[in-house]
Design a protein around this nucleic acid. Structure first.
Lengths: 128, 128
DNA sequence: AGTCAGAGATTACAGGTGTAGTCGTTCGGG
DNA sequence: CCCGAACGACTACACCTGTAATCTCTGACT
């Protein structure tokens, strides 16, 4: 009963970098997306164009004509993407239970003091 | 300073299913791995053989001759794999901070009561 | 001793992904 | 009014992944 009718196919890692740029600010032109990500990833414009096209094809991004170019805007929301990826990981690696993930992060000392404090705060809030 | 000298390349999802079988019990023959996963995934023997070979190539599994066949044994430990994958996700999606991941799971109601109780227990233990 | 079952090795092949070049059109400047 | 810059569309291509068929060898049984 949790089926989304979003026909959202899976988004690859490179595509995700483009999505992050669009989540940060949108709509953007292809050139602006490139400004946001090309240097960090060592990409050229054509690469960004390809990724944008694929994202449009996957239904994760929509275009809006603006003169003779396009403005790109995310259709998939970040929270949905993040939620899906998190769930996939938890399902695949921890049998769907979040506690073992937490235990693992704790054991690996991947939790900062800030994280711990924040989580305690969240827990307190939840149980209220 | 946390670089592992393990030359462990990335393991794909199908390969991961094979690893799970080997983590469950090892060493196993290819046929035994197939017994463990073929039905669930709808795979045939050749598929398992291919995945095992790739895992050996990636240095995640080692072989030990046993008569004329091989016994397969994981070299990569489950905790390392799980840790790596978890870290990748947290880095990519939450800027490396675990608290937002936790917040997200909480918000998405992906935490069962058991999870919450368990996490509280872990927290109490950690702060001691 | 000959053959067959079963083991790993080799090959296959379509689809996804990372990364980019080229093509055709069209707007704006001279 | 023409040309070049810039844009999206199309094409390219190597590698990875999922999935499997086929080949070759060798040990065991008859």
């Amino acid at each position: 009963m949790a089926d989304q009718d979003l026909p959202t196919e899976r988004i690859s890692e490179a595509e995700h970098a483009v999505m992050e740029a669009l989540w940060e600010k949108s709509p953007l032109t292809a050139a602006e997306v490139c400004d946001a990500v090309c240097e960090r990833r060592g990409w050229s414009m054509p690469t960004v164009k390809t990724l944008l096209s694929r994202l449009v094809g996957k239904g994760a991004v929509e275009t809006e004509p603006d003169g003779r170019r396009f403005l790109y805007r995310p259709l998939l929301e970040r929270a949905d993407y993040v939620g899906g990826e998190s769930r996939r990981l938890v399902d695949r690696l921890f049998g769907g239970r979040a506690a073992p993930l937490f235990a693992h992060l704790a054991e690996a000392e991947a939790l900062s003091d800030d994280d711990i404090a924040e989580i305690e705060r969240l827990l307190k809030e939840m149980r209220k």
